[in-house]
Design a protein around this nucleic acid. Sequence first.
DNA 1: AAATGAACCTGTTTGC
DNA 2: TGCAAACAGGTTCATT
Length: 272
Amino acid sequence: MPELPEVETVRRGLLELLGKRSRIESVAIRQRQLRYPVPRSITRLNGQRIRDITRRAKYLIWDCDGVFLLNHLGMTGSWRLLADGEAPGKHDHCILSINKQRRLVYRDPRRFGMLDLCTDAVFNHERLCRLGPEPLDTEHFHVDYLHQICKTRKAAIKQVIMDQAVVVGVGNIYASESLFRAGIRPGNAAKSVSKKRLTALVDAIRAILGAAIEAGGSTISDFKQAGGSDGYFQHQFKVYERADAPCVQCGKAIKHGVHGQRSTYWCATCQR
DNA sequence: AAATGAACCTGTTTGC
DNA sequence: TGCAAACAGGTTCATT
């Protein structure tokens, strides 16, 4: 489910739902085997107040008075509010009892997500410390930086921008969409992409992710009411999942292929 | 060092 | 209709 815009939308939705004074009465783990085993120390959240929820890359960081819950949604992770009397489902792996009445569950059928407890400086966490810059951080993510990286890389440009050590938050959908916007073929070797075109790519990544966050924002009310993630798909894809459909710019059929084990979509006319 | 493919899981869609 | 294969928004690990 989530790339950066979806995670950001979940973050905003959770804050809307919980506010900044909610108290975690108790944490219950029903399934410990996620991407990594959920540590028993997770119970240190018991009794803590949620002061803030921030985001780094596709990770949510729940700041609970200096104790941090680090949370990645993997492919299928979501947070849901259970209705009164509703039993948790088979994929509801963690239950946070909030302010005595509400139960917030972490639901994740494929279990690729993660939950970890962090008491030290959270940005030193082994999953966070090697991440590249945030795409919307213009000070650290810019064309000179990307060019420096790309010029030695033979790999496809799509795979380079999906490398979380290069830039974070760009997943399979937004990689295709950004490359379409920039007019670059996904399979081109990164080192063969001119600096001028990398400038267009940096702009495209920012524009696409920014627009997607805005679009995700419009579904926050769904999230508040249902506590679910329905409606996060309402992004306007120009190429993703549009194989054989007419290109919105030139009308030619959109191509589809598999690169690096992931589906890729592009327009052979508009992208060179 | 960088590129590649397999692995971790389950649910849904596709194709014979 | 039924069943198996393919596929899904992510990341890590072992192997070339």
